[in-house]
């Protein structure tokens, strides 16, 4: 494990749950890695395959989508549809010889501030263990 490595992680967060949970985590003064870049989306259903791929293409070491609990989507099933898109991207990365774990889908509610911090820490830890994205290693070399 590379101790100097500070992963760049993109998190697509639904404004109805994960984004609100991030706010709550902030006001509860919970710690989570500062290198997670949060992008607010109106619903995780808005996140498309191309958004996740572009993040990887442009150098992100990890990407995740955080949406409402299954069954609680404000737009009925945006989170369920996007889970499938995440699976597609995982498959694409596998085909390209890149660890599929760099992409993930999480579900939580707006009341779960601590869970938000936990997910952020967990993803940060996972990517730190995986090391930099192979795209970044080659570029540095």
């Amino acid at each position: 494990m590379n101790h100097d490595f500070e992963p760049q992680i993109i998190a697509f967060c639904c404004k109805y749950c994960a984004y609100a949970a991030a706010d709550l985590a902030g006001s509860m003064r919970l710690n989570y890695p500062s290198n997670i870049k949060i992008i607010q989306v109106p619903c995780t259903g808005r996140v498309d395959i191309i958004h996740l791929l572009r993040a990887i293409e442009d150098g992100a070491d990890g990407v995740y989508v955080a949406g409402c609990m299954e069954g609680d989507c404000h737009f009925v099933c945006g989170n369920i549809k996007t889970r499938k898109k995440v699976e597609y991207v995982k498959k694409t990365l596998s085909e390209l010889g890149i660890e599929p774990e760099r992409v993930e889908m999480f579900n939580l509610s707006s009341a779960m501030g601590p869970r938000f911090a936990e997910i952020a820490n967990q993803m940060g830890e996972r990517i730190r263990n995986l090391g930099p994205s192979p795209l970044n290693i080659k570029q540095a070399a």
Partner: peptide
């Protein structure tokens, strides 16, 4: 249009990985 974007990005990722 959408699938063209996805293929484009996928191929670029593969090439970047090879440097």
């Amino acid at each position: 249009v959408k699938e063209v974007q996805i293929l484009s990005s996928s191929l670029k990722i593969a090439r970047k990985k090879e440097g």
